[in-house]
């Protein structure tokens, strides 16, 4: 196991030393803090309109004018971070000629890929923690409100979900870095998947849903609901959708369902916030799906890497 540790520390040092991580880090910090600043400002202006509960979480969910919320920011740029950290993990070793040098040392072959994956995941975790702390710190000083235990634990869950979400893209990047010999190809392939899941999935889901459950102006409410449900299910193939739903439910305690709900279904509903356990229940399927996506992606990379002939690539 010492092999994994050595690879892990070396890769971690590489990630933090390299220019690309530094640039990413700066961009995220600036954007994160500017989001907080603006949302805190707007919240300060309309203080009366905002419910007293969970004000702190509003820092992460509220969007101000043209600037998107923090959740949107992570769901949109998180994949880029993961891809940037992972896309050249294996093929750059081949290109540099370090692969056979490292593998001829007395370590198991999986130490290399495990070490790299864990180092990437840790980099992501450290980045996210710093950003969340920056936002919380700014929020504390501007709003003058201390987060309560429920809010802190919700932020914890949100943090874990974000790491897993970005971890999926990291392992996707690593997978492509194993499958493609050239770093340019693996970067392009990863970005293609990202664009598909982020932009095109909406259109694809819409088209498929409309084909299967067509809507005209004579359709009943039931059919519209069905169409909407189908569209949501298709969109949930995308990890971005899963993440947005998780983040939405975790950071917004009053969320208790997704999609279209008829007014009869919510009749008599008391719109008070849910405890964390109940919120987790709401998004548990999404959570498991996200974890599964990341693990499956990594498992495929692992298997392919272990079976690959050292010369063939």
């Amino acid at each position: 196991m010492s092999g994994v540790r050595v690879v892990f520390w070396k890769e971690l040092a590489d990630y933090f030393g390299s220019r690309r991580s530094l640039i990413l880090f700066i961009i995220i910090c600036i954007t994160g803090s500017s989001i907080t600043y603006i949302s805190a400002q707007t919240m300060g202006q309309n203080f009366a309109k905002i419910p007293v509960d969970f004000i702190f979480l509003k820092l992460f969910t509220s969007s101000a004018g043209a600037l998107p919320s923090f959740i949107f920011f992570i769901s949109f740029f998180g994949p880029l971070i993961g891809i940037i950290l992972g896309f050249d993990a294996i093929n750059s070793e081949h290109a540099r000629g370090t692969m056979s040098l490292v593998l001829s040392q007395p370590i198991f072959r999986d130490s290399l890929i495990n070490g790299k994956f864990l180092a990437g995941l840790s980099t992501v975790a450290i980045m996210l923690i710093s950003i969340i702390l920056v936002i919380s710190g700014l929020g504390l000083s501007m709003l003058g409100i201390v987060p309560n235990l429920a809010e802190i634990s919700r932020m914890g869950v949100f943090f874990i979900a974000s790491v897993i979400y970005i971890g999926f893209w990291l392992s996707l990047g690593i997978l492509f870095s194993i499958l493609f010999r050239r770093t340019a190809s693996s970067a392009l392939a990863s970005i293609t998947v990202w664009i598909f899941f982020t932009f095109f999935i909406y259109m694809v889901a819409g088209v498929i849903a409309d084909q299967l459950v067509p809507i005209t102006h004579t359709t009943t409410l039931e059919t519209i609901t069905k169409n909407e449900h189908l569209k949501n299910m298709i969109m949930r193939i995308s990890p971005a959708t899963l993440f947005e739903e998780i983040a939405g439910a975790v950071l917004n305690p009053s969320v208790r369902f997704f999609g279209v709900v008829s007014s009869t279904q919510i009749k008599g509903l008391i719109p008070n916030p849910l405890p964390l356990g109940q919120s987790l229940m709401v998004i548990w399927p999404q959570f498991v799906g996200l974890i599964a996506l990341m693990l499956i992606c990594f498992a495929i990379s692992y298997t392919v890497f272990m079976r690959q002939e050292i010369r063939a690539i």
Binding site: D14, R96, G97, T98, S100
Partner: peptide, 11 residues
């Protein structure tokens, strides 16, 4: 083992 066209971590 010294591989053919050995490479190192350039940074």
């Amino acid at each position: 083992y010294l591989p053919e066209n050995v490479g190192f971590y350039e940074d």
